[in-house]
Nucleic acid binder design. Structure first.
Lengths: 68, 68
DNA sequence: ATAAAATGTAAAACACTCTTGACATTTGTG
DNA sequence: CACAAATGTCAAGAGTGTTTTACATTTTAT
């Protein structure tokens, strides 16, 4: 699919005062996965995206925005 | 990740009176992809999930629900 | 200025998503 | 019933997402 997506994970994470490792632990993924997503190396799976949105008390569409 | 997810794509598609092929064409994916998702062979990518939700005028969380 | 904590990078292995093409089954209508 | 339309299945291959391990850089606090 390969479409650019803005994501606001770092922003929401800092608002929640969590470290990358905390997010990784809570969602049971590796810290690398969180880093890669924050730095736009790739998009998360749908499942992980939903969990991230839930963790930050927001919606998937709020957290990830399709370009243009 | 491999978590079961209920998805309501078939339901929303029928409400919209679209064929699988219509959905595939509009979102520029193959018909197989739509079939596989409707029949829970696998979950769509985040990008495709967002596009599906938009097509059906709903939210990702409404369309895809994590089990339990 | 130093040490510790947090964040970032890289690469290999593996699992998951998507496509293509060809064919089978089910559903709907005359 | 018969034919067409819609839906489903299978398999191979390309591309994407995640993990692990090990190490490098940046940030924070003392």
């Amino acid at each position: 699919m390969v479409i650019k997506m803005n994501n606001r994970i770092k922003e929401f994470r800092k608002k929640s005062d969590l470290r990358q490792e905390d997010v990784a632990n809570q969602l049971k993924v590796s810290r690398q996965t969180i880093i890669a997503i924050e730095n736009n190396k790739y998009n998360p799976s749908l499942e992980l995206a939903i969990k991230l949105a839930k963790l930050f008390n927001t919606d998937v569409e709020e957290l990830f925005q399709l370009e243009e």
